[in-house]
Amino acid sequence: MRSKTFWQAYARNKAARFGLVIMILVVVLGLFAGVLFPASPWDMVNAPFLPPLSDGALLGTDTLGRDIAAGIAYGARVSLLIGMTSTAVAVVVGVTLGALAGFFGGWVDDALMRFTELFQTIPNFVLTVVLVAIFTPSQRSIISAIAIVSWPPLARLARAEFMSLRSREFVQAAMTTGQSNMAIIFREILPNSLSPLIVSASLMVATAVLLESSLSFLGLGDPNAMSWGYMIGSARTVIRQAWWMSFFPGLAILLTVLALNLIGEGLNDALNPRLSRQGKA
């Protein structure tokens, strides 16, 4: 990838630049949460029900006197960590299955696509809820559950890419020179199908962040980590008295997911220039 033209293409999209700035802020907030807020986000640091802009609590405190701003900073860690990890797992699973289906075709393709179809029919969110509830909420069960419902679109995409690339001349040439299937898959086809995969993976992180927040909203978050969804879920019943407890964490989710979506679109513009120019009238 010629990085200079890549950045030029990316930066041409104003919204994508905006997304990147927000994302950097969220990452910095997550990384330096411990420096900005040395106390644990679970500690009662102030009087409960303090409205925003109170002394010592910029965004107010919750029903137990915990600092909302601290919760948001520590929550950024959880959201990004789970969003990225579960996407990484989903990418590995989805691309592997899709690559096998697209490369080998025939009954392998049939079987794998049936399997994928099954997972696409199943109501996603219900399955994540069931999985996390049964395997008890932990970082590991949440990441696995999100990955399990997220891989099918990637498998389909990878399959389509592999199917079309496999009949191209450079792949045929590699085959005639007697390269192994593994070498062809990893050295010839995969590098050439990366750009659409990167774009959808970046959009998938956004979905994963939303999923994680929904799980913790329902009380299925990692009980050891403060997360945005948990903050909203526990403030839900006092919405009449204290809007700020659910407002700010929600805003954090909104901005993060929006930023990830904008970055995804920017990547799309930069990596698939032909497609994106057509899309804009």
């Binding site: 919405i239 009449r240 929600g250 909104l254 979506n261």
Partner: peptide, 21 residues
């Protein structure tokens, strides 16, 4: 774009805040 990025349960709570409270 905004609706796409907002958690629906949060939209629900905000609508309650506005239209009910």
């Amino acid at each position: 774009l905004l609706a796409y990025a907002t958690p629906i349960y949060w939209i629900g709570l905000m609508l309650i805040l506005l239209f009910s409270v």
